[in-house]
């Protein structure tokens, strides 16, 4: 296992399409780091640059103590799990798992031992004599993981490996993945656009947008202390309410605004709003315009004049509750600069 250091990586496709602009972050030894961002933000390109499948225009990649920016993929001691698994369709599961070792000329006995170990770890023993076409999506995904881990690489790179699974299987596999990487204590860099995967799996999240890093931090920091409105809105479902401060004051709320109100945006998570069917001191009355019950929680869309908010409640909301009384949680408010959209320190 090893630390991965990415320093000021820049990449342009063609003459003008800037894909990555000065990306820097570290994945410490044994850390699980997710690259999170919307489609087209450059996260897969960054992963491919770390893998050596593409080369950056400038910047450096270090794996352990070694600079590998110009090193071919096979000499970086990495393994990669691809989005479509990239299993060799003409080979058996056992041959797929052992291929990396065979190509590196490991002795047959060691290939067999390691293949069996990986198969045992991922519960693949009954499938070793099958071809990939005879496997389900989840089984293929496990074979791809086994193929990556059998070489005991310094770093495992995973490119949206769960995106082809259905919702139930994805959730189960996510849990298995977390346990697996905790068990092997391996350094992993994981690309996803799914915030739930990033939040649940990662020790650290790198949020990307339009080729730039928006924030690097623990899942808790990313969720509760977003550095800008993009991160605030990208994480959370429903996303954080971002409202111009003057609109909040007009509605009757009186939070302590840091600086001039016209220069500030207020961010508040839907689940942090204090909301009740009963009136209380300082609470503002809102009309409930939409009630979306998902069983465990209820999402309300509420409106007071021009101000519209979304609130997320655990449990139910009375069906005849057409009025909601809302107060702001003073200790859970985020403030952003209205022009730069960056968090106010």
């Amino acid at each position: 296992m090893a630390k991965v250091t990415v320093k000021d990586i820049r990449k342009t496709f063609g003459e003008t399409t800037k894909v990555l602009e000065g990306i820097s972050f570290e994945a410490n030894d044994g850390e699980f780091v997710s690259l999170l961002g919307p489609s087209g933000c450059g996260k897969t390109t960054l992963l491919r640059i770390i893998a050596g499948l593409e080369y950056a225009d400038s910047g450096e990649i270090h794996i352990g103590d070694k600079e590998v920016s110009k090193t071919p993929p096979k000499d970086r001691d990495i393994a990669m799990v691809f989005q479509n698994y990239a299993l060799y369709p003409h080979l058996l599961v056992s041959e797929n798992i052992g291929m990396g070792l065979k190509l590196r000329k490991y002795p047959e006995a060691e290939i067999k031992t390691r293949t069996d170990d990986a198969a045992r770890m991922l519960d693949l023993q009954p499938l070793l004599d099958r071809k990939p076409a005879a496997l389900s999506g989840g089984q293929r995904q496990r074979v791809a993981l086994a193929r990556a881990l059998v070489r005991r690489p310094k770093v495992t790179l995973l490119d949206e490996p769960l995106s082809n699974l259905d919702a139930v299987l994805r959730e189960r596999t996510r849990g298995e993945l977390k346990l697996l990487f905790r068990k092997i204590n391996g350094t992993a860099i994981y690309v996803t656009h799914d915030q739930v995967e990033a939040m649940t799996l990662s020790d650290k999240i790198v949020v990307l947008n339009k080729g730039r890093i928006q924030q690097v931090g623990t899942p808790h920091e990313i969720y509760h202390e977003p550095q800008n409105t993009f991160v605030a809105k990208f994480l959370g479902a429903p996303p954080m309410n971002i409202i111009p401060a003057p609109q909040i004051l007009e509605a009757g709320f009186s939070p302590e605004v840091p600086g001039e109100a016209k220069d500030r945006l207020l961010g508040v998570r839907p689940e942090d709003l204090n909301i009740s069917v009963d009136s209380s001191d300082g609470a503002i009355a809102f009309d409930v315009t939409l009630r979306e019950a998902t069983g465990a929680q209820t999402v309300l869309t509420i409106k007071a004049g021009a101000l519209e908010l979304r609130a997320n409640l655990s449990g139910d909301w009375p069906i005849n509750g057409l009025k909601a009384f809302v107060s702001l949680p003073a200790d859970k408010l985020c403030w952003f600069d209205a022009s730069t959209k960056e968090a106010c320190s």
């Binding site: 893998a51 096979k74 990239a86």
Partner: peptide
Amino acid sequence: PDELYEAAEIDGAGPFRQFCFI
């Protein structure tokens, strides 16, 4: 798929072995 060649490249196969194996 290109991914098969990329997987083989990471697994340690050069162009000739990629040709033979894939």
